[in-house]
């Protein structure tokens, strides 16, 4: 058996988590989904290596992570530009690259976007819980050590395989690279308690600028803006889909993300489209976003288009990634 090269964590930074496609079939037991916040960038990180769409990638939030290769490794980097460098040389995202033994890969301050995805051949090794290595701290599931904890100084990361056939392209064609510097217009499919919102609030929801709050994590991202008023007579907790937008009594929406609670009792304005979720995952604190109403058909079409681009590129079926 050949020894698989490892990547040693020299400095862990604030939050680097192993994430695969997520945990499914367990929501009714109160267990959350997990998985990459930006499924789009994570999908490309896997595609560049010819991995399965749901293979485990490393989600690096904000930066500050420093890794050292202990042998030659082929990796991919997609998503946010976190001022990554190899031995001090700038490394742009959306490409595949090779580290030699002793090379140091470092992430610095976010230049554009929030979350970068580092792919390894065959995906990174993790300890699965309930069929997934998705790392969820509050549940203690998944991750590289199986305790739901993020990377720590001195930890080791191992790709599943030493090498595998790679796609001919070593970078994501520019037309498929999202520009996180552009203002985000997030598609929302109205639904839930939409009809109970005040008319003026509905107008403002889809016309006013919203600011990404500091209260933003893998459970949910709060938006600050005009106070939205909902006249629902009394909510009972309901199952929450990924991207559901809850509006608590303070009138400030919370977009529910991968590690959301499974049920919730605040009125919902609608649901972010899958592409909107991926885009919001890359919005920095204080950034202005807009919500734009859209329909299921269009959202589905856009989602399939994005998934098929990733899938055709890696020459693999996209169906397994269908759980966005």
């Amino acid at each position: 058996m050949s020894v698989v090269a490892t990547l040693r964590v020299e400095k862990a930074g604030p939050l680097a988590l192993l994430q695969d496609g997520g945990r499914f079939g367990v929501r009714h037991l109160g267990i959350t989904q997990g998985g990459p916040m930006d499924w789009h960038a994570a999908g490309w990180a896997n595609a560049l290596l010819g991995n399965d769409p749901g293979a485990a990638v490393l989600e690096v939030a904000i930066g500050g992570l420093r890794l050292v290769a202990e042998a030659e490794l082929t990796l991919s980097l997609c998503g946010a530009d976190l001022s990554a460098s190899v031995n001090g040389q700038q490394l742009r995202p959306w490409q595949r690259f090779t580290l030699r033994a002793g090379d140091r890969l470092a992430f610095g301050m976010p230049r554009c976007g929030v979350r970068a995805y580092l792919g390894g051949c065959g995906g990174w090794r993790g300890v699965p819980a309930l069929g997934s290595v998705a790392c969820v701290g509050r549940e203690g599931f998944g991750g590289h050590k199986g305790d739901g904890l993020p990377l720590d100084d001195g930890d080791q990361l191992q790709p599943e395989v030493r090498s595998q056939p790679l796609p001919s392209y070593s970078y994501v064609p520019p037309e498929y690279q999202p520009d996180y510097g552009q203002p985000a217009a997030l598609g929302v499919i109205p639904g839930g308690q939409t009809a109970f919102f005040d008319g003026a609030s509905l107008y403002e929801a889809f016309n006013a600028p919203w600011q990404v709050d500091t209260r933003a994590d893998r459970m949910g991202i709060r938006l600050l803006g005009p106070e939205l008023v909902c006249h629902h007579p009394g909510m009972v907790s309901e199952g929450l889909a990924a991207g559901a937008i809850q509006v608590p009594p303070d009138g400030q929406p919370i977009c529910l993300m991968n590690d959301r609670q499974t049920i919730g009792g605040y009125p919902r304005l609608g649901t972010l489209t899958p592409l909107a979720r991926a885009r919001l995952a890359q919005c920095q604190t204080g950034e202005t976003v807009r919500l734009r109403a859209t329909g299921i058909e269009r959202a589905r079409h856009e989602y399939f288009g994005a998934q098929k681009a990733i899938g055709s590129f890696q020459g693999q079926k996209t169906c397994a990634a269908g759980r966005g």
């Binding site: 499914f24 929501r27 907790s237 589905r300 269908g322």
Partner: peptide, 22 residues
């Protein structure tokens, strides 16, 4: 079927969008 989440008065039914449309 991807998820089935019952809660008090509702059930959230999540399905595979590649195989079924709304």
């Amino acid at each position: 079927l991807v998820e089935l989440v019952p809660s008090y008065t509702t059930v959230l039914v999540q399905y595979d969008p590649w195989q079924l449309d709304d």
